[in-house]
Design a protein around this nucleic acid. Structure first.
Lengths: 154, 154
DNA sequence: ATTATAATTGCAAACGATTTGCAGGCATGG
DNA sequence: CCATGCCTGCAAATCGTTTGCAATTATAAT
């Protein structure tokens, strides 16, 4: 294809996710390709979860194929570089995992204008232990998103 | 079509959801049809959320069309007789709303065998007020499901 | 550097859940 | 009992996502 102009290797700020990408990719004998770097770039610039189609639009339709984005998101998710969210509309959204450890959080979505607010606290984590004890389940995780009408849409 | 054999109008227990169905349907000048009653019957017999395809199988493929089930679930959901759940696999699941008021609850799903356990407590409700106050959002709701590995699948 | 090899991509077709257009069929009010 | 308009079945259309395949590219070895 030869049209991945990913030449910004000289910007100033620390390029954490890109380094992490390279490390993790190499650890699995996967390749550091243009589309993968470009996708992480897009995610790094955005602060809220993006759909694959939105990522494509940010990249420009010429930059990379939608199928490649889907495949990349699977890989990036498996590598722990990206987290997948479900806002209840049947479209997957992805957000960059910032920092090495847990960046677990939830979202508050406006049902009128789709504005997304990040909720930093994670409430159910403590309760998972109670549920695990009562149910006998192990490896508990959860999905939690809040919905409402934002101030502008009242 | 003429093949909706919904003739069990003589069973003993109180038929709450059917009465509610009739009331709410009449209030919107909608019709009390065989498929709608049959679907609620299926849901009443099951204690965990069903996909539309599962509902179709319970009904028997001759009883009603899949498209009708989809349309019915929209209607029943709008009437508040049924609640929609999303277990993260991209397939909608529906559960009967039992009782007139809030039957708000969540689920714990085994990621290995898909067993569903109902979690009666609703933890985030209290926290919604905090979030509403901090964010300025109104009409807060939330979606919360837990995932883990059940005792049998450990 | 050059090459060999496996990973990756683009494209298009396949897929599965859900929606919808339409013509005929029914529930309900009059 | 009739007329009206809501509903249904069927099939085709949508939409997000996945996948097969041949061509392309990153990487390691030479």
């Amino acid at each position: 294809m030869g049209k991945h102009r990913h030449d910004d290797h000289s910007h100033g700020h620390t390029d954490v996710p890109l380094d992490a990408l390279k490390d993790k990719l190499r650890a699995g004998s996967r390749k550091i390709t243009g589309p993968r770097q470009a996708i992480l770039d897009v995610l790094r610039r955005e602060s809220h979860p993006l759909t694959n189609r939105e990522i494509l639009q940010h990249l420009g339709h010429e930059e990379c194929d939608l199928a490649t984005i889907y495949r990349s998101m699977h890989l990036l998710g498996a590598l722990g570089l990206v987290r997948k969210y479900d806002f209840g509309d049947g479209i997957a959204r992805f957000e960059l995992v910032r920092g090495d450890d847990e960046t677990h959080h939830h979202h508050l979505i406006c049902t009128a204008c789709a504005t997304v607010v990040e909720i930093d606290e994670c409430f159910p984590t403590a309760l998972e232990q109670t549920i695990a004890a009562q149910s006998g389940f192990s490896k508990l995780t959860h999905k939690l998103e809040f919905f409402g009408v934002c101030p502008k849409c009242q």
